[in-house]
Computed example of a mutant assay.
Amino acid sequence: MKAIVTGAAGFIGHTLVKRLLDEGYEVVGVDCFTDYYNIDIKRRNIDTIPNQNNNFTLVEADLRTVDLGALLSDAEVIFHQAGQPGVRKSWGNDFLHYTEMNINATQRLLEAARAAKNLKRLVYASSSSVYGDAETYPTKETDLPRPVSPYGVSKLAAEHLCSLYAKNFGIPITSLRYFTVYGPSQRPDMAFTRFLRAAIDRSSISIFGDGTQVRDFTYVDDIVNANLMCSQSTEAPGSIYNVAGGSNASVNDVLKVIEEITGSPLNVEYVTSVVGDVKRTGGDITSISSSVGWEPNVNLRSGLERHWEWAQSVYRA
């Protein structure tokens, strides 16, 4: 089975690539190594991918310009993980990067997928940010999306494109709405990596808001499992699923668990909340559970312990 993974050098992307190789796939990873965060980190992610059987090929290219027809010609599964991340950076002039990388690149990929004769499934990495401040919790896929950040708008727009191409051209697309992913190799700008690195450095941790905001944290291996299970399903084109870990913990709750795991108090300071951050997220996973049998396997404490082990290996001098 040949798989294409876009965003292969990223946090979720390279974790997915390693799992696919373990499962015996031939994998082509695509990444343009944007400078949203330190490119050296992405290079190190790629270096961790085992390639003893020469089943992995890295294509360093931009989805907006690369010859996608040739790239996808014999692809059987496409995992579209690439995109411009981050709520805080999506305001102002930076929004151009989000329209280009999240919307335009996705539309170009979808056009090329129409001609991919062997394609069995395209899995798109959407986000819980499409919900914004949801009307109900846990939030169902049928609830009205109301993003409150430009990032959320861009992810929802790309998701809508996936649905349109599924409906009009029959492309076998599944969109997965990820809820706050964490675990080893998490981006350096994301909360848990910042917290754990501060625990190592004994530096201060800036919390945006009062720390009572609640998130449905999802361990990265559970996200990878959801991708694999959905790629092998026969669901109708255009299916949309929440992928949520079920933790529903506040940021302050997480800080307490980290103190317990690391065995030392954290130096926390609370700063002004960020425009576009929601007060709560929580995903109803009834649909993905009943359709493909996916359930989260890693609880928050176990996931944080694994994240802590990784952080020490990377950041401890």
Rank of each mutant, 00 (worst) to 15 (best):
N227F: 14
R114H: 05
T48M: 08
A134L: 01
R44Y: 10
T65F: 12
V153K: 02
H160F: 06
P150W: 06
L156I: 11
D253G: 09
Q81N: 11
G7Q: 08
G29C: 04
G246Q: 02
N93F: 12
H160L: 13
D40I: 09
C32G: 02
Y98Q: 06
G263L: 08
A112Q: 11
Q107N: 13
A70H: 12
A70G: 15
S204Q: 12
W308G: 05
I207D: 09
A134T: 00
G246T: 01
N227W: 07
A317P: 15
I41L: 15
V28N: 04
A199T: 11
I12L: 15
G246A: 04
A105L: 08
M229R: 13
N54V: 00
G245M: 00
S149P: 07
A199L: 11
L156E: 03
R64W: 01
S175R: 02
R88P: 00
I12E: 10
Y124V: 05
V257Q: 12
P138T: 05
L255F: 07
L119P: 11
F79W: 04
E260N: 14
K155C: 06
L122G: 02
E159Q: 15
N252F: 09
R215Q: 06
G69Q: 08
G263D: 07
R177N: 11
M229Y: 01
A113P: 13
V5Q: 10
S129H: 13
A236R: 13
N93T: 14
V220W: 01
T99A: 08
S149Q: 02
N168Q: 14
W308H: 11
T174Q: 09
N55C: 08
P85C: 03
S250G: 11
V278L: 10
I288A: 02
T218M: 08
D62S: 10
A113F: 07
L144A: 13
F195V: 15
G83I: 05
T193I: 08
A236I: 04
H14W: 09
P184H: 12
M190K: 08
F56M: 06
T174A: 12
I200H: 10
Q81T: 10
E159H: 07
Q107A: 14
V254P: 06
E309Q: 14
R187V: 13
S128Q: 14
F56V: 07
N51W: 01
T34A: 14
T99N: 13
I288N: 02
N248G: 03
Q213H: 04
T234H: 09
P188H: 05
A244Y: 00
P150Q: 02
I39G: 06
R306I: 10
L156V: 06
R316V: 09
Y37A: 13
S73Q: 14
E135R: 00
I4N: 03
N38H: 12
G13V: 04
V17C: 12
W310E: 06
K167E: 13
N299D: 15
Q213F: 01
K120V: 03
T139G: 05
T99L: 14
V66H: 03
L110D: 11
S90D: 10
S250C: 03
S290K: 14
